[in-house]
Design a protein around this nucleic acid. Structure first.
Length: 372
RNA sequence: GGACGGUUACCCAAGUGGACAACGGGGACUGACUGUAAAUCAGUUGGCAGAGGCCUUCGGAGGUUCGAAUCCUUCACCGUCCA
C-alpha cells in the first residue's frame, strides 16, 4: 500500500487546504519548505528548523551527488539520518542546475553533462542517474529530472518542454522505491499553449504529485501568475501541486489563491545571509544605519524566536560586525514568516475567509512604506 | 642645538611638474537577491549640480611655473639618530 495519500481538507475558491502523508509524517498544506541544498538549511540546526515550524526541507541531487556522494549518504543510513531531520524531505532532481549552470553544462536528448563546480571534473546526470541518486539519498518526495529553461524563448521553451516530458516518462520507468513519491514537472515557459500541453502530458503520467517548474526565473509577475492559473486549471485536483522555487509572501498568497499547495525557496535563507528580513510589511535591510538604535523587533507582530528576544539594533549590530549569528537569527525569522503565512492561509481556507485574508495581506504588503 | 625621514580625503596608503577630485585596501553608506557555483554581487564615499558642469582640497604661509599633491623658502608637528 502506498504510504502517500492526498486528502483535501477544504477549499476556498481555488485555494486548497490538504494533507499529504509520507513515510516521515504528513504535510499540512499550503506548506512552505525551507531549502537545504547541501543537506543543511544554511546556518540553522534541524532543531531550529523544526522549532520555527517547518514541515519539510529540500535537498539537492546535483550538490549531494558531487559531494559527499549519494552512495556515501546511503551508506550512512540515508539523508534523514545523515542530516538528522526526521520529517519529510524532498530532493530536487538537478533539473534546476541545468538552468543555473549554463556555463558549465551541455544538454543532449539523453541527459546533461556538467562540469563540476567543485573540481572541474565532468559529471553526468540523466533521468535514470537522477532517480538512482535520489533513491540513494532516500527523500520522501523525489522530483523528475527536467529541463528548466529561460521562460521567454518560445522555440527553446518548447524544446525543453518536450525533452522534459520524455525524461519524465523515463523517470517513472526508472523509479524503484515504493517509499518515495515521484512528482512530475510541468514546463513550457510563459506560453499558454506550451503550458497547456505540458500540464496535460504530465497529468497523464502516473505521478504522485505535480510540480510547476520554470517560473520565478526572470519572467514578469503577470506572466507567472497567469501561468500558474492556467496550469492548475488543468492539473487534476486529486494530487498535490508544488510550485518550485517560490518565494515571496506576495507570491505565496497569489499562488495559493490559484491552487498551489507546496512551495520551496532559497529566498528567506539567502536574504537572511544577505542581511534582509522578510516581513508581512515588506523587507527590512538590517544593514541600514537607521536601525542602529531601533529597539523594536524586526516585526512586532511576529512570534518567532528572533522577534521574541532581539531588537533591530542588536541584529543591525550583528550584521554590521559580520557575526554569523545574524544569519541564523534572520533565517529563523524569514522562514518563520513564510511558514506562519502558510499556516494562516490554511486556517483562512478552512474557515472560508481566504479571499478576505489574501486581500488584506496583499494590501498590507503593498503599503510597506507606511509601517516600517 | 644639529642630521636625516615623514605630514595625502573617515582610517591605512599610492602618487614626486600637466592624462589628479587624486590608484589600492579598510571602514561607512545604499541597492539587488525566488527548485542556492550566492555568509554573495553591484554602486556610492570632498562639496554643489538629478546627466560627462562648476567650486574647494594633498600640514600652514609664501614663491617658481602657462600649469604644483609633486620644485624652492620658511614655519609647525611627528619619528629616528648625533650632541
Amino acid at each position: 500500500m502506498t504510504p502517500f495519500n492526498w486528502t483535501l481538507d477544504g477549499t476556498d475558491g481555488n485555494a486548497r487546504a490538504g494533507t499529504f502523508t509520507t513515510p516521515h509524517g504528513a504535510l499540512s498544506t499550503p506548506v512552505f519548505a525551507p531549502v537545504g541544498t547541501q543537506a543543511t538549511v544554511k546556518s540553522l540546526t534541524p532543531a531550529q528548523v523544526e522549532e520555527l515550524g517547518a514541515q519539510m526541507v529540500l535537498a539537492n541531487t546535483y550538490h549531494l551527488f558531487l559531494r559527499p556522494g549519494d552512495e556515501l549518504v546511503a551508506e550512512m543510513g540515508g539523508l534523514h539520518r545523515f542530516m538528522h531531520w526526521n520529517k519529510p524531505i524532498l530532493t530536487d532532481s538537478g533539473g534546476f542546475q541545468v538552468f543555473s549552470l549554463t556555463q558549465t553544462r551541455r544538454i543532449d536528448e539523453d541527459g546533461v553533462t556538467f562540469k563540476s563546480h567543485i573540481d572541474g571534473s565532468q559529471k553526468r546526470l540523466s533521468p535514470e542517474i537522477s532517480m538512482r541518486i535520489q533513491e540513494n539519498l532516500g527523500a520522501d518526495i523525489v522530483m523528475a529530472f527536467d529541463e528548466c529553461a529561460v521562460p521567454t524563448d518560445y522555440d527553446y521553451s518548447r524544446l525543453a518542454m518536450r525533452r522534459t516530458h520524455a525524461w519524465a516518462r523515463r523517470c517513472l520507468d526508472a523509479k524503484r522505491r515504493e517509499d518515495q513519491a515521484l512528482f512530475g514537472i510541468v514546463q513550457g515557459g510563459i506560453f499558454s499553449d506550451l503550458r497547456t500541453e505540458s500540464a496535460h502530458q504530465i497529468s497523464a503520467m502516473d505521478f504522485q504529485g505535480h510540480a510547476i517548474g520554470g517560473l520565478s526565473v526572470g519572467e514578469s509577475k503577470t506572466d507567472m501568475y497567469r501561468t500558474i492559473a492556467e496550469v492548475n486549471s488543468i492539473l487534476p485536483g486529486d494530487k498535490p501541486r508544488y510550485l518550485m522555487g517560490v518565494g515571496t509572501p506576495e507570491d505565496l498568497i497569489e499562488s495559493v489563491r490559484r491552487g498551489v499547495d507546496i512551495f520551496d525557496c532559497v529566498l528567506p535563507t539567502r536574504l537572511a545571509r544577505h542581511n534582509s528580513a522578510m516581513t508581512m510589511h515588506g523587507r527590512l535591510n538590517l544593514m541600514n544605519a537607521s536601525f542602529s538604535r531601533d529597539e523594536r523587533p524586526v516585526d512586532p507582530e511576529c512570534g518567532c524566536y528572533t522577534c521574541q528576544h532581539f531588537s533591530r539594533a542588536y541584529l543591525r549590530h550583528l550584521v554590521n560586525a559580520k557575526e554569523m549569528l545574524a544569519a541564523s537569527l534572520l533565517s529563523i525569522h524569514n522562514l518563520h514568516t513564510l511558514v506562519q503565512l502558510t499556516r494562516d492561509m490554511r486556517a483562512a481556507i478552512l474557515d472560508g475567509s481566504f479571499e478576505q485574508f489574501a486581500q488584506e495581506k496583499l494590501a498590507q504588503l503593498r503599503n510597506k512604506e507606511t509601517e516600517k
